[in-house]
């Protein structure tokens, strides 16, 4: 029997008794070395990526977030009780440090969609070039991308960071020069300034009407939870 784990909190929490775990198990707390691990028993060895499971996972972490800011586990984490206790015990100091970082904070997300013109996006034409030159141009674009797009997308990312830096404790920015979703940012902010943060984004939207801003949150601090940087894999949905 394994546990599906949702999050770790610095103190015990009072869970909503109506919560149903991923896979249908009851949601419970395991206290390990003074840290509270929210988990539920899980019968099978694989978690299906379904709407229901995703929403159950998020609902449980969010229930904890209503009381304190936890470190959320990534969806699909199944571990034996012994494995879980070993993990928490061996990494207690790092977990406590990270819990201190996210204390009283939430994560906000900003995605910037670039309403580019044809001129912005079209690659250099190769119609008038010979086969060899066209190949080299195509190869250059493949290897380095369009430098203009890179420069412009980085300018957007820098501008965004500069405009909100006084509101955020930590940020994690990814820049995608060749995509419409050109900048994706996650920001750790104090709970108390959520409204101020949203107002600032609204001001930014007025300042740069050629860009569209998607803001969401407050989220549990998924982006700022991991203490093991080597596991920053990409599933490709950001």
């Amino acid at each position: 029997m394994k546990f599906y784990v949702y999050c770790i909190a610095s103190t015990p929490v009072e869970l909503d008794t109506l919560l149903i775990g991923v896979g249908g198990g009851a949601v419970e707390q395991l206290i390990v070395d003074g840290l509270s691990v929210v988990a539920s028993k899980f019968d099978t060895d694989r978690v299906s990526v379904s709407r229901e499971n995703i929403l159950r996972h998020e609902a449980i972490v969010r229930n904890v977030l209503a009381m304190t800011t936890p470190l959320p586990f990534r969806f699909g984490t199944l571990v034996t009780e012994a494995g879980l206790r070993s993990y928490v015990t061996s990494r207690k100091a790092a977990l406590q440090d990270r819990l201190e970082v996210v204390k009283d904070s939430v994560e906000m997300s900003i995605k910037v969609i670039w309403q580019s013109t044809d001129d912005d996006e079209s690659p250099a034409t190769t119609e008038d070039l010979g086969v060899g030159a066209a190949f080299l141009v195509a190869k250059r674009q493949e290897l380095f991308g369009d430098e203009r797009l890179v420069k412009r997308s980085q300018e957007i990312a820098d501008w965004l960071s500069g405009r909100i830096k006084n509101l955020v404790k930590k940020e994690n920015i990814s820049v995608h020069p060749k995509q419409k979703l050109v900048v994706a940012g996650a920001y750790l902010i104090q709970r108390a300034i959520q409204a101020q943060f949203r107002t600032r984004v609204e001001e930014l939207a007025v300042e740069r009407p050629e860009l569209h801003f998607l803001t969401s949150g407050p989220w549990p601090p998924y982006t700022f939870a991991n203490i093991d940087l080597e596991f920053e894999t990409q599933f490709g949905v950001s």
Binding site: L71, G76, T77, Y87, A186, Y222, D228, V237
Partner: peptide, 21 residues
């Protein structure tokens, strides 16, 4: 989509214990 982005792509990881379908 935003939820998927957060729960699938980010969060605390225990080595080798992600077992999603």
């Amino acid at each position: 989509l935003e939820t998927l982005d957060h729960v699938l792509n980010k969060g605390l990881v225990i080595a080798g214990e992600i077992t999603i379908s």
